[in-house]
């Protein structure tokens, strides 16, 4: 696997494997959604996953924190294998943060309460400490002044930044992004991407399902192309965009780059 340093951001990938998928298969009823997925992610690596809709890319990253169950193969996160064992699932979810397409903020809690909920109830952090930490992260995503508001009072871009801060409050080792900008108006995409780029620069291990090819070019260490439930091609961004190996990849790129 090639790991080339990217021009704009310094990769901090260390070579230590944090996430490993070995021969993962998944079915929805009779439908074969994931076919023999093999993937290794090293610490600090930034991976962008793209592909047409229905290709299984969201399903794959949702398997990594067990929002979906896989039926064959192994998924190992930080040395913990995901099985039926609730303890293992808890362990993995503590270390893996996730940002959703539709933000999924808790509408009945303020921004600050959204951020403190998991640290208090999962990490057993004193409320004061949790609030202080939450404020730090809210400053990082540049919306500390919204802490006392409710999610419904914020714009989409602001909500997504709160969602990122909320995940960061758990101090995760890995962040999963499931199409974080797809539900946003164009003028709000940039503020979220900027936050994500900043996060990437701080050395966070990231797996992003996204159609933002600009983001992939600037930030990613590796781009993965999925179609029909399998990984068809993976490569460092320059190679991936300029010299795609498979006909499927070429077709996909020609379709999205036209616009």
């Amino acid at each position: 696997m090639s790991e080339t340093d990217n021009a704009s951001t310094q990769s901090q990938a260390t070579g230590e494997v944090t996430i490993e998928l070995r021969g993962v298969h998944k079915w929805y009823g009779q439908f074969h959604v994931l076919k023999d997925i093999n993937l290794q992610v090293t610490r600090g690596e930034r991976i962008v996953i793209c592909g047409p809709s229905g290709s299984g890319k969201s399903t794959m990253i949702r398997c990594i924190n067990r929002l979906e169950e896989h039926q064959q193969g192994q998924i190992i996160v930080d040395g913990t294998e995901l099985t039926d064992d609730v303890k293992h699932i808890d362990q993995v979810r503590k270390e893996v943060g996730m940002v959703f397409q539709h933000f999924n903020l808790f509408p009945h809690l303020t921004v600050l309460e959204n951020c403190c909920l998991a640290p208090i109830w999962v990490r057993k952090m004193p409320r004061r400490e949790a609030e202080a930490a939450a404020m730090r992260y809210l400053e990082k995503v540049k919306i500390p002044e919204q802490a006392k508001k409710y999610p419904g009072q914020l714009s989409g871009g602001q909500q997504q930044r709160v969602a990122i801060a909320r995940s960061l409050c758990m101090n995760p080792n890995v962040m999963l992004f499931d199409e974080p900008t797809s539900a946003l108006d164009p003028e709000m995409i940039k503020e979220v991407l900027d936050t994500m780029i900043e996060l990437a620069e701080s050395g966070m291990t990231m797996l992003c399902v996204t159609h933002e090819m600009g983001f992939a070019k600037t930030v990613a260490d590796r781009v993965i192309f999925m179609d029909g439930g399998e990984i068809i091609e993976e490569n460092e961004p320059n190679e991936f965009f300029n010299n795609p190996q498979s006909d499927r990849t070429q077709l996909f790129l020609s379709q999205i780059l036209q616009h």
């Binding site: 924190n65 929002l67 808890d90 893996v96 959703f100 909320r166 995940s167 758990m170």
Partner: peptide, 26 residues
Amino acid sequence: SHGQTEAAHALGLRPGPTLRLVIIPQ
């Protein structure tokens, strides 16, 4: 919405607290 449950689970909340802190109040 199901997204609320998923978000709570993704944050590491167990089913019990998810129900008590996220689902029931809404």
